[in-house]
Design a protein around this nucleic acid. Sequence first.
DNA 1: CGGCTTATTGAGCAATGCTCAATAGTATGC
DNA 2: GCATACTATTGAGCATTGCTCAATAAGCCG
Lengths: 191, 191
Amino acid sequence: MTPEERRRQLLGIGLRKFVDRPVQELSLDEVAAEAGVSRGLLFHYFPTKTAYHEAVVAAAGRRVLRTLRPDDGVTGEAAVRQIVERFVAQVDRRRGFYLAFVYGQIGLPAGAAGPRQDVAIGLRRNISGLVCTAMGYAAPLTPVVHAWVAYVEDLALQHTEPGTSWGAGTAPLVDHCVALLPVLVALGPPA
Amino acid sequence: MTPEERRRQLLGIGLRKFVDRPVQELSLDEVAAEAGVSRGLLFHYFPTKTAYHEAVVAAAGRRVLRTLRPDDGVTGEAAVRQIVERFVAQVDRRRGFYLAFVYGQIGLPAGAAGPRQDVAIGLRRNISGLVCTAMGYAAPLTPVVHAWVAYVEDLALQHTEPGTSWGAGTAPLVDHCVALLPVLVALGPPA
DNA sequence: CGGCTTATTGAGCAATGCTCAATAGTATGC
DNA sequence: GCATACTATTGAGCATTGCTCAATAAGCCG
């Protein structure tokens, strides 16, 4: 097995496991056993346990972002609608995964200058980047869009909360979010 | 030292420590050493390591919520303004603490029926409860208010992000958030 | 085949989560 | 004031686990 495959295999195992429990509780023993390799090998691919965890979470972030990217040629509000639809659908289908991703996180460094990357917030930044390019929004609007992503994220998570689901389908939710964005922009940036 | 004091002491140590690093990396050895007690004693007060971590994070949540509660007699939009002001101020003053609280979280259970409590989302629910009673909002509006809290939280965190601070003071930010709430309500719930 | 690189192992160390029987210290009932 | 019950506290000890390192196996190129 080539190193590239190994790496992907190990990350894949992490991705499968991290839905069930917080990443930090995923022992390298377990990963090694599942992969059928020795514990020592993991340290050949990842310098430390947390490095492995970060790699897993980063992979999860890339995976989420990939499914959100709107179809080629679609722009403007239609693109935003696609993004929101896919986002809500994904949260709906794999609530545990997304929940674990956002809140079952590797902690952030207190000083922001640390080497660690905040992948959950990084994902928000990426999504808001998607939206901004789709709508042609410029720099001073990005904070608002960023916070709007947090808003959509929270609504989607609430919507899929077991037992508390208000409304049947996802359509009103998507409508609400898409309609909100221009309203926010009209409200003007908080600066 | 009475058990009540002990408990508070141990939680206090956790509260101080969990700003610097993710809670999960706080070893019981360290806590025991700092408290000047044996490791075994910790298991007399908390059944397991994660139980201790959860207790610490829950205490942090109570602490945050306490500072947000508006003054007696203040209601309506004025109360909302107070809440937002204090929230932003708190995030501003102790960014690391709040960041660690929301995102450096103990992971959530995949199945929602698990015994664990989601304290970060629980805090959001509590804050939105504060806002709803202040404004007299009824049940169908709560999801929107909840998501609005997420919006405010994200903006506040962005605002204190080192280097990326747009705008000088917190006033425009507070204005923006307070103004947004009735707009959201007017937009109607997504159901 | 011989030699180089590297993926891989396995032993071993130290930290740490956790258990448990023993102890010390305190309050209570008489 | 004494004995009893209770519990806070300890310390030894076990198993897991993050991590290191020297040794080995396995490919690859000449």
